[in-house]
Structure formats: structure tokens, C-alpha cells
């Protein structure tokens, strides 16, 4: 069933059209992409329960329910805030 057509109206938008029969797989994929985007900040990101676990370079960890909360956690725990328009971020992604 597609998350868009389901009865749960409180899901985060990022879960929407990709919520398949295996929502955990979708979260793992989102965690992987978020970790890639935040690679310069020194944080580790993993799917965790219904959301994500963010661990900073000092080992401090917080849980985030969705991508919006995840970026707030990355800002709070990371060495620097990821910016999808910064030259550093783009160059790192384009080198891959």
C-alpha cells in the first residue's frame, strides 16, 4: 500500500510516496542518503525504530522522528551544519 493512500495522516511528507510494504527499508535508504549529505559534519546517522539515530563526533546521540528533526539534530551535534548549496557539499557529492 502506498503511504499517500493510507489512513495515517500524521506521517512525515518524506515517507509518503515511498512507503511500501517495507517501511523500514525506506528509512534505511533515507538514513543512507542523509548520512551522505551530512558527511562533512562528522555525525553518524542510522535508521532506528520508527525514525533515525544521530550520533555526533563526541559520541552524543539523539533520536529524530523524521527528516526535519534529523537535520536539527545534525546541526546540534555535528562539527558543521550541512548545506546542500555549499561548494564543499556539492564538490564532495560530485567526486563520488
Amino acid at each position: 500500500m502506498c503511504g499517500l493512500c493510507g489512513s495515517f495522516t500524521d506521517i512525515h511528507w518524506s515517507t509518503g510516496p515511498a512507503l511500501p510494504a517495507r517501511p523500514a527499508a525506506g528509512r534505511v535508504a533515507l538514513a543512507r542518503e542523509a548520512a551522505r549529505a551530512a558527511s562533512g559534519s562528522g555525525v553518524a546517522i542510522a535508521a532506528w525504530g520508527q525514525g533515525f539515530r544521530v550520533t555526533g563526533p563526541t559520541g552524543r546521540t539523539t533520536l529524530a522522528a523524521d527528516l526535519g528533526a534529523l537535520w536539527l539534530a545534525v546541526d546540534a551535534l555535528g562539527r558543521k551544519a550541512p548545506d546542500p548549496l555549499s561548494e564543499d557539499c556539492l564538490a564532495a557529492l560530485e567526486r563520488r
Binding site: 511528507w13 518524506s14 510516496p17 515511498a18 543512507r32 549529505a37 527528516l67 548545506d83 546542500p84 548549496l85
Partner: peptide, 16 residues
């Protein structure tokens, strides 16, 4: 890919 797109848009909206 939805996950790559959603990551981009969520970070873009968060930062800018």
C-alpha cells in the same frame, strides 16, 4: 530516486 530527492528537499528547506 525518492530517498535521494527527499533528502535533498528536506535539507534545502531546512537550510534555505
Amino acid at each position: 530516486d525518492w530517498q535521494a530527492f527527499a533528502t535533498w528537499l528536506s535539507l534545502l528547506a531546512h537550510r534555505h
